[in-house]
């Protein structure tokens, strides 16, 4: 464990909690892409099946359980409890265009052709594009609530910090995972446009406009 990975995980946890609390307290999921949240639930489910097979550490297990729990709770709030506030018209990204290529790629390029490893690879590839429906929805509505922008900032920051974690681990441990690194770079690059706006627009004053 290193400072980049720990702050990355905490940034990820913050993003997940910010979104869950926002929907719960405002009793509304307006401006939130349910499709992205379903993709994240799939990402965690396929990546954390090793909860059933191997124990790495209490931290590892706790975080995985929290991530999976919050992801499904968020999907439940969007599609069940506050379904009336779900903006389906603007959440129109064709996720099959993400899931199918990612599924194919995970079968072709992986570290080991075993079910668990292919699912892990699928999860890594899917996570790198899972935010696209949300970014697409914001571009369609032309704005995002301030809280939503903080959610996206923390979410984007987490994988950027992981890039530094991988540099650290390569330098100090000689460890590197090319699949995770390449997908992590793609994932972080997708946020660049958003990061630029978040930093330059001084968002705290008005809603995010493209």
């Amino acid at each position: 464990m290193n400072v980049f990975r720990l702050t990355g995980d905490l940034s990820h946890l913050a993003a997940i909690i910010i979104l869950l609390l926002k929907i719960w307290k405002s009793r509304s999921c307006a401006g939130i892409s349910g499709k992205s949240q379903i993709l994240f639930a799939i990402v965690f489910t396929t990546r954390y099946l090793d909860l059933l097979t191997s124990f790495i550490s209490l931290y590892n297990t706790c975080m995985k359980v929290i991530y999976i729990g919050c992801a499904y709770a968020t999907v439940y709030l969007i599609y069940a409890k506050f379904r009336a506030t779900y903006d389906g018209n603007h959440d129109s990204f064709r996720v099959e265009f993400l899931v199918v290529p990612v599924g194919g790629l995970s079968v072709l390029i992986n570290h080991d052709f075993s079910p668990l490893e292919i699912l892990w690879t699928f999860s890594i590839y899917l996570e790198s594009v899972a935010i696209l429906p949300q970014l697409f929805m914001i571009s369609k509505t032309g704005e995002a609530e301030t809280i939503t922008t903080h959610y996206l900032f923390c979410l984007g920051l987490y994988r950027a910090l992981y890039l530094f974690n991988w540099i650290w681990r390569f330098y100090f441990e000689g460890f590197f995972d090319m699949i995770a690194i390449v997908a992590g770079v793609v994932q972080t690059v997708l946020y660049c446009d958003f990061f630029y706006l978040y930093v330059t627009k001084g968002w705290f004053s008005r809603p995010y406009r493209l």
Binding site: R5, D9, I56, M63, K64, H111, E117, N165, F176, D177
Partner: peptide, 10 residues
């Protein structure tokens, strides 16, 4: 790339 007990990162 894989540790013997799978992946140790979240």
């Amino acid at each position: 790339a894989m540790k013997d007990d799978g992946h140790d990162e979240l």
